[in-house]
Design a protein around this nucleic acid. Structure first.
Length: 244
DNA sequence: TCCCAGGGGCCGA
DNA sequence: TCGGCCCATGGG
């Protein structure tokens, strides 16, 4: 049963790294008494509309881009007063593109941010107690499954598991996945394992990112890896495994 | 200089 | 359906 391994890996990673406290929210960094990294200690349902929008925007900005660069962009946006869906709709797209330049793909991402801002404002999805339908998010240009699930999970606390390259890489190497599974199939494996507990799904994805950055890189650093013993990489008998 | 980074859209076979 | 290409900056 794969569920056993999935929950076991969660325990191992949580024990090794501790709670990750995702998602860092810039606006909270400015608040007295808050962790200086801006990690939210509030459940997503209690986030302010602007914090919620910041998470959604961050999910777009980090597409195929390191969070380090995204943070600088969010900082730039905030300083110029653009970390606000109304302002994003007001400003010319070329100007928005220039201000998010550091996070790459700036022309595409400027268009995506405008589309997303309009959608969230029109549906009043930044207000408390209301969150967008997944299919509606997926219908937006520039929002794929990973981005939609990141927004739903971290901005709204809706229990969707976020499947990214890191997830595929780690669990292919562990032999839990083969590399042929569809996105939704992988997401279902994880979310059903934790009875769709949003807090755990948030934590697990964060731990996966941490582990992929520190150990399970594209070129793996197996020394000191807490999953080393259970990893198929050690057995060298997994020729069919796809490399992510 | 080269590789990599928390994807997604589009197009042709 | 699936592979290949495009988008693009910045750090190691």
């Amino acid at each position: 049963m794969r569920h056993g391994k999935i929950s076991n890996v969660y325990s191992v990673l949580l024990n090794a790294y501790g709670p990750q406290g995702w998602w860092p929210v810039y606006s909270l960094r400015q608040t007295e008494g808050r962790d200086e990294r801006g990690y939210s200690d509030k459940p997503p349902g209690k986030l302010s509309p602007l914090s919620r929008f910041e998470i959604a925007a961050g999910a777009v900005l980090t597409q195929n881009t390191s969070w380090f660069n995204v943070e600088k962009t969010i900082d730039t946006l905030s300083r110029s007063g653009l970390l606000d869906p109304v302002k994003i709709l007001d400003v010319p797209q070329s100007e928005l593109a220039a201000s998010i330049r550091q996070s790459g793909y700036y022309n595409q991402k400027a268009r995506k941010l405008k589309i997303l801002a309009a959608f969230l404002l029109d549906g009043e999805y930044l207000q408390d107690g209301k969150f967008p339908d997944r299919d509606a998010l997926l219908g937006l240009w520039g929002i794929g499954k990973e981005t939609a699930d990141s927004i739903l999970l971290y901005a709204y606390g809706v229990p969707f598991f976020v499947v990214d390259t890191y997830t595929k890489r780690i669990f292919n190497r562990l032999g839990v996945l083969t590399g042929d599974e569809e996105y939704d199939e992988i997401a279902e494996k994880f979310s059903s394992c934790f009875k769709s507990d949003a807090a755990v799904l948030q934590e697990y994805h964060a731990l996966i990112v941490r582990h992929a950055k520190e150990q399970c890189r594209k070129k793996p650093e197996c020394n000191g890896c807490v999953l080393r013993e259970s990893c198929l990489l050690n057995l060298q008998n997994n020729p069919s495994s796809k490399n992510f």
